[in-house]
Amino acid sequence: MKSRRVGLALLIGLLIVSAGLNLLGGPKWFALNTLFQSSTHLSTQVLWRMRIPRTLCALMVGALLAVSGQLLQTVSHNPIADPSILGINSGATLALIIGGVSGISLTVGHSVVLGLIGAVVAFAVVMLLSVSHNGIDPLRLLLGGTVFSGFISCISYAVSLVTNTTQAFRNLLIGGFSGVEYAQVALLAVVFVIVFGLAFCFCSGFTVMSLDQQTSRGLGVAQGHLWVVATLLIVCATGASVAVAGNIGFVGLGIPQLINTIWPGSFKQNLGFTMIGGAIFMALADLVAKTVIPGTELPLAALSAIIGGCFLFAIVAFGERVIRE
C-alpha cells in the first residue's frame, strides 16, 4: 500500500519531468521562460505552435497504447498480447496507406476514420484466426497475430514502395510526432476521454476477468459484453494513435509488463500506473528521437522496438521474481 503511494508520487514526478524535457528539448533547447515571453518571439511561437502539441500528442499516444496493451493482456489471458503484436497497428497503418495512395487527402478526420477501419478489420481477422471450438485460444491468438502482423506490415511497405510514396508516408511507416498540430491534439483528447472513461467505468469487470474463464464466469462476469467493450477501447486507442503518430509498437507490451513487475497488482490497481508509465515512456522516446542526431528525426517505431525489446529481454532473462524479493 505504502509502496504504491510512493510509486504513484514517483511516476507523477517523472511524468512532469519527462513532459518538460520533451517540451523544451529538440534540435534547439529552449529555456522554460521562453514560454511566457511575448508571442512575437520566434522561439515562443515555435514552442506554442509546434512543441506543445507534439508533447501533448506524445503523452496521450503513450498512455493510450500502454492501456490498450494492458486491456488486451487482461481479457485474452495472455501476458504478451499487445495491439502491435496482433497486427492491429499494422492494419491501421495499411488502411491509411491504401487511403493515401488512392487519393484520399489525409486530414485528421479522414486519417482517424481510416485508422479505425484498419484497426477493426485487423482485429476481426486476428480474432477469427484464433477462435477454436472452445472460445479464444491464447496461443493461436498470439501466433496467428504475429504472422498476420508481419504479413500486413510487408504489404504496407510493398504498397508504398510500388507507388513510390515511402517518403510521403515516412511518418506513418516508421512512426513519429513531427508536424502534429492542435487538430491532432483535439482528436486524441476526445479518444483519450472516451477510452479512459470507459476503462475506469468497467475496471472492476476487467479486473475479475483476469481470473480464468470459468472462475470469472462463476463470479457473474458477462464476458461477451466486456469483450465488446474491450475491443471497442483497443480499436479506438490504437486506430487514433496510428492516425496521429504512425505504427509504434512495444509500448503496449513493455509498459504494462514493467509496471506489473515493479508493482504486482490487479488490472484496477495498475490502470492508472500503466497510463502514466506509457505517457512517460513516449515523451522520453520522442525526446530521444528528436535530439540525439541534430537535424534528423530518428524512427520512433524502431526506437520503441529497441527499448521495448530490451525490456522484454530483461523480463525474460531475470524473471518476475527479481523485484518481488
Binding site: 487482461t74 483476469s210 481470473l211 480464468d212 470459468q214 462463476g218 506489473n260 504486482p264 518476475e320
Partner: peptide
Amino acid sequence: LAQHPIAPDG
C-alpha cells in the same frame, strides 16, 4: 469453483 482456478499474478 472450477477444478483448477488460476489467479493473476500480484
